[in-house]
């Protein structure tokens, strides 16, 4: 008997490479100027799921909540070895904080059902909050293990892992199902398989198929969709209606936290005294520091 995994992934702006053009004059970030990438720790999470699948079999479903273009990272999940990818997308999800996001994800997971593991990266680099994993686990009423460094052993009903704690690590054993968030050092994600890349590069969401029909009047959306489903190239999209969600808990309405103000980083100090890089300069500096009891 294989084990089924659901892997939560996120497309994020590449905050590690922020250039001058990306920062506006008022100090805010122009997200549109940032390249969108696959959050690295989520890719590591997918790799851990794949390794379990390699050994025991089972099905891997990659899910993401995001705008239509987030389908890019779902295709990457398929290239790596995920069996199915689902886009959870609706304009009404926009502006979601971690609480609203975890509500939508947990409802989508309930709809998918049948899982032994839920995997996610520890945190996404655009917010660094590390909250969505635990918040989703709480809503599903299942246990969680955060900061996972290594999966040591799985049995039919349990998993044993090594996780980081403050000042060390611990070995935990959990009954399944369990949600795990993983650290970037847990493993090195496999490269795309050429065969899978060729097979899945044409995998499309409904929105992407629709835009194809807009460009070519000879195509009919229903037939196109059927063809893609038959060839296993259809990326399912779940909307608010599909999930029968409570609108007051989605997107900006369901988000208790609001951004009140954003400032560019202000430097403290600023008016430094310039000390000449000479023997005399050092002697004077040391004398001043010692007189003020900062040194000595």
């Amino acid at each position: 008997m294989g084990k089924n995994s659901i892997v939560m992934v996120k497309q994020v702006p590449d905050t590690a490479n922020i250039s001058g053009q990306v920062m506006r004059d008022d100090g805010t970030v122009n997200r549109a100027k940032l390249p969108a990438i696959f959050n690295h720790e989520d890719r590591v999470a997918l790799e851990l799921a794949l390794r379990i699948k390699d050994q025991e079999g089972g099905k891997i479903t990659a899910i993401t909540m995001g705008p239509p273009r987030a389908s890019d990272i779902l295709r990457e999940c398929l290239y790596m070895g995920a069996d199915e990818a689902i886009l959870i997308s609706d304009r009404k999800f926009a502006g979601a904080d971690t609480l609203a996001t975890s509500y939508v994800l947990s409802e989508a997971i309930k709809k998918i059902g049948h899982y032994d593991f839920i995997f996610a990266g520890r945190q996404a680099i655009d917010g660094d909050t590390a909250q969505v994993g635990p918040q989703t686990a709480e809503k599903l009423n299942i246990p969680q293990i955060t900061y996972v460094e290594e999966i040591l052993e799985t049995t039919s009903k349990t998993v044993k892992v090594k996780r980081k704690i403050d000042g060390g690590f611990e070995i935990l054993e959990s009954t399944l199902p369990v949600l795990m968030t993983v650290l970037k050092d847990a493993c090195f994600p496999r490269p795309f398989k050429a065969k899978r890349l060729m097979a899945y590069k044409n995998a499309k969401t409904l929105m992407e198929l629709e835009s194809l029909t807009e460009e070519n009047s000879l195509l009919y959306i229903d037939r196109l969709k059927e063809e893609h489903i038959a060839k296993n190239l259809y990326i399912q999209t779940l909307t608010m209606d599909d999930l029968q969600l409570d609108i007051t808990r989605c997107g900006i309405h369901g988000s208790p936290t609001k951004v009140h103000k954003v400032e560019s980083v202000v430097l403290a100090g600023g008016n430094h005294e310039t000390i000449p890089p000479t023997k005399e300069g050092m002697a004077n500096l040391v004398a001043e520091l010692m007189d003020n009891h900062i040194l000595g």
Binding site: A16, T28, V29, G127, P256, K258, V262, E263, V265
Partner: peptide
């Protein structure tokens, strides 16, 4: 700090 430390954000929870 937000966005990799490039900005400082002030977050509020007004209606909770």
């Amino acid at each position: 700090p937000a966005f990799g430390g490039n900005i400082i954000a002030t977050i509020i929870t007004p209606d909770n």
